[in-house]
Amino acid sequence: MLGTIIQQTVNALTIGSIYALIALGYTMVYGVLRMINFAHGEMFMLGAYAAFLALTLVVGDIGAVGAIALTLVFFGAIVAVGFVGVGIERLAYRPLRNSTRLAPMLSSLGVSLSLVTGVQILAGPQPVGFPSFFPTTRFDVFGGTVTLVQIGILIAAFILMFGLYTLVNRSRMGIIVRAVSESRPTAQLLGINVNLAISMVFFSGPLLGAAGGILYASYYGIMSPTMGAVIGLKAFTAAILGGIGSIPGAMLGAYILAFVEVGGTALLPVVSGGVLGTEYRDVLSFAILILVLLIRPAGILGEPVSEESMVYKREF
């Protein structure tokens, strides 16, 4: 029993860390642009493909790659996706900066569609096996199984999230990003380089999302061009649940969602006497999301979006 609980907790923490990495991108973009970036799930997908490309093309033989080379591949891939994110913002969202609020969101749908199809054309639509970035060692903890992959994911996610936290709260760049996210017109009046802050957000968000993609692909050993859609939606749900625009909120929301999912899978059939199967865990997640939004429209840790920040732009 204890073993099962430990194993399920580690499962939830693992998947929660991946959701958190992606949710951070949604929340930061929303913070500075008040825009839902529907193409963010595709950064997650691109991360896995970029790493795979680097492994097969640059490094060559996958079997004989050392830890240092793997780390280099990991960072190379996520930085590359970060630059892709900056490029997309420059081409598809910046021209719409002064348009309606809906316009960049729809443009991001176009970006999402283009990226998925682009990868399908280049790499084929079928799922591809993904090499694990970690040794497949298993540990037995009080009867439950914990894998080294899971521990690796937890550590990597923790380092990345800590890095982001430090960047946002302790660096000059972080002050700029926070100022823009507080009020873009005011930041602009104070002479802050708004474009730089937005580029920074569109660099770090996709970077974290791509890291999530690589970790996810090596956890499940598979990647596909459409993998971003479902996970993107989940991470997005997590960001809203925690309070979109809030960085700690995105992390909290991600772990809550992961625990609801893992707990729901295990408990729903038992609690409902077999009426509701494990398929209903997504219904449970969405139901919790809707409930939270109805009670606290800004999410658990989110600050209510002030009318002032909404007013300077028309919805449609």
Binding site: L91, P95, S107, G110, L113, S114, T117, G118, Q120, P125
Partner: peptide, 16 residues
């Protein structure tokens, strides 16, 4: 698939 890619890009261009 090229038509879907075209559609995605067309969407971005039209919105801009």
């Amino acid at each position: 698939e090229w038509r879907i890619l075209f559609l995605g890009l067309l969407m971005i261009v039209l919105i801009i």
